[in-house]
């Protein structure tokens, strides 16, 4: 039935579109965190670790 082939082509297109949306949203979820400013604590800890190395 040609109805079936038309349907599956539509399905295919819809699926691809949906996957693209999911991909976009997934990246947004991740980028929301990478775009936050890094808490001072991180850099302080790194500096501390670097400084204590020099004392050893």
């Amino acid at each position: 039935m040609d109805h079936q082939t038309g349907g599956s082509a539509d399905d295919d297109r819809a699926r691809k579109l949906r996957q693209k949306r999911i991909g976009d949203q997934l990246r947004r979820l991740y980028d929301e965190v990478t775009e936050e400013s890094v808490p001072e604590e991180f850099l302080n800890l790194l500096e501390q670790a670097d400084n204590s190395k020099n004392k050893q």
């Binding site: 965190v33 990478t34 775009e35 936050e36 890094v38 991180f42 850099l43 790194l46 670097d50 190395k53």
Partner: peptide
């Protein structure tokens, strides 16, 4: 060298946070 490593590591903090969050 340590300085370069530290700078690169610091630059990756946002990604470490994002991966950890997931």
């Amino acid at each position: 060298d340590d300085e370069a490593f530290k700078a690169e590591l610091a630059g990756l903090i946002p990604h470490l946070r994002a991966f950890a969050r997931s």
